[in-house]
């Protein structure tokens, strides 16, 4: 899976590439509009992550070129601008997602994966990890071939974990993933805790192992080790 990261802030581009490479993606970076324009017309990517504000142009231009050349590429906008107009414009010209800076790498990772899944399989495939199977279309979860009933938030939480295996996730990023960024309060961290407790219990009930590891002071990690 090839991903192009168009971002002029070198450090940020490096972080994204580093993070996504660990997840098994092949990443390339373009720091300017023209670099990106060139790469887009030369190579084929499964997903492109585009920053809107570039020193020599607007990210929208790249999206328009991309849509002309290869309509199948998934596009995620990452921008510091959080106006509704920009979001609407981004979606109108064919981007699939819009993330406002600062964002969580784990969230970006989850969204890239979900986008590629949607693009490649139409969301029609199952996600299998050890004894856990998620039927994405039906939103059903099986542990050891036995269905376990999860609430909507528990399901989202499990999917978020499965997209970020072996990665330390902060409580804040989980809360934001589940409720969006308007839910910033100590209460939402409590809620994360109680959802994780429930999810862990439900997996254990069906004979699954306890994969959710808590990391002191930071958050959680979904891992087999």
């Amino acid at each position: 899976m090839k991903i192009l990261v168009v971002e002029d802030e070198k450090g940020l581009a490096e972080s994204i590439v580093d993070y996504l490479s660990k997840e098994g993606f092949t990443c390339e970076v373009a720091n300017t509009f023209w670099q990106a324009d060139e790469k887009v017309s030369l190579y084929q990517y499964d997903c492109t992550i585009v920053d809107l504000t570039l020193p020599d142009g607007e990210g929208f231009g790249i999206i328009e070129t991309l849509k002309k050349i290869a309509a199948t590429t998934g596009i995620i906008i990452i921008s510091a601008r959080n106006t509704l107009e920009d979001k609407i414009k981004g979606l109108e010209i064919g981007s699939d997602d819009y993330m406002t800076k600062p964002f969580h790498l784990s969230e970006l990772n989850a969204r890239v994966k979900s986008l590629i899944r949607r693009r490649n399989f139409g969301g029609n495939n199952d996600m299998i990890w050890r004894e856990i199977t998620v039927q994405l279309q039906a939103r059903k979860v099986f542990v050891n071939e036995r269905e376990t009933l999860l609430s909507r938030k528990e399901y989202d939480l499990l999917l978020y974990f499965l997209s970020n295996i072996d990665v330390a996730l902060t409580k804040e990023s989980i809360a934001e993933h589940l409720w969006g960024d308007h839910m910033d309060s100590a209460d939402s961290l409590d809620m994360v805790y109680s959802h994780i407790k429930n999810l862990r219990r439900k997996i254990l009930e069906r004979g699954g192992k306890d994969y959710i590891q808590s990391i002191y002071g930071i958050g959680y990690k979904f891992t087999a080790s």
């Binding site: 510091a80 800076k101 969580h104």
Partner: peptide, 17 residues
């Protein structure tokens, strides 16, 4: 917005790493 949010995004990303 751009000039402040971008470094913050960098801090966030580095912390996550």
């Amino acid at each position: 917005s751009h000039e402040i949010q971008t470094p913050l995004a960098l801090i966030n990303a580095r912390v996550e790493q």
